[in-house]
């Protein structure tokens, strides 16, 4: 199945039945479901090891959760805001990485236990949010320079532009002097307010353009929040340029 076909199938499935929550990691699927449920619902999930879980949701709150195996509180109890931490810990312990083996939501029955205050979805989401990841090389200029260093024969020079300032990052002095007029024109062109892709380039867009004149190779222009990086590549195809950037960003 091609990525396009997979995307189309996902969109069609989503249009028919709502978000395919079972495709997300279990804890995320669960908190998303709580956050989007207003009417009383019974949500049943089966983990890969066969454990069967039932959650009672209403008004974007989790009122009760039950497990088919012997379990300590907060399982099988009426829940309130004071149980938020315990519930978050229990969910993290019970729901492993991967996905639910089965996941379905049905309307609640009259006898279903909705007699508690419940835990707000927002509180659970906040409590379960992963800690901000520490990216080893988060500095954008460092990443650009790292790409240049990883392929010294292919990358002739690299530059970064923030505001109206253009700063050379790597490359010999002669190469930078020779390239600077062309690079300045290029930066001005792609950051012009009338350029329809300028907005995307200042966030997460990537542009690959042929080098001017008879020069072989291409320019790889990488967008970042508030900054644009540019790598001048020798004798490199556009696909190889994108692959070089992708390879060094993982």
């Amino acid at each position: 199945m091609t990525p396009l076909a997979r995307l189309r199938d996902t969109l069609n499935a989503t249009a028919m039945i709502g978000e395919p929550a079972h495709a997300a990691p279990p804890v995320t699927a669960l908190t998303n479901a709580i956050n989007r449920t207003i009417l009383p619902r019974r949500m049943e999930a089966r983990l890969q090891d066969g454990v069967h879980l039932t959650f009672y949701l209403r008004n974007r709150r989790l009122h009760r959760m039950e497990k088919n195996a012997p379990s300590a509180p907060p399982w099988n109890l009426a829940l309130g805001p004071e149980d938020c931490d315990a519930v978050a810990d229990a969910l993290k312990t019970t729901c492993p990485a991967g996905t639910f083996a089965a996941f379905q939501t049905t309307g609640a029955q009259t006898a279903d236990p909705f007699d508690s205050l419940g835990i707000a979805a927002s509180a659970l989401i906040e409590r379960l949010a992963p800690a901000p990841a520490q990216v080893a090389s988060d500095d954008f200029q460092t990443r650009i320079a790292a790409v240049a260093d990883s392929a010294p024969t292919e990358v002739e020079a690299s530059f970064a532009m923030a505001g109206d300032e253009i700063a050379p990052l790597t490359g010999s002095e002669a190469a930078i002097d020779a390239l600077l007029p062309e690079i300045t024109d290029l930066f001005l062109e792609i950051t012009d307010q009338a350029f329809s892709l300028a907005g995307a380039l200042e966030t997460d867009g990537t542009l690959v353009l042929p080098r001017a004149g008879a020069s072989a190779g291409c320019h790889l222009i990488v967008g970042h929040v508030g900054m644009i990086g540019l790598l001048v590549l020798r004798d490199m195809s556009p696909g190889a340029a994108l692959a070089l950037w992708a390879r060094t960003q993982t």
Partner: peptide, 25 residues
């Protein structure tokens, strides 16, 4: 909008380009 982008990338610069790629997630 695609035609406008094509104009801006291919024809608006001082150097007329023969190809270009624009990648987003």
């Amino acid at each position: 909008a695609i035609s406008t982008s094509a104009f801006e990338i291919m024809a608006q610069s001082a150097t007329r380009r023969t190809w270009a790629l624009f990648l987003t997630p």
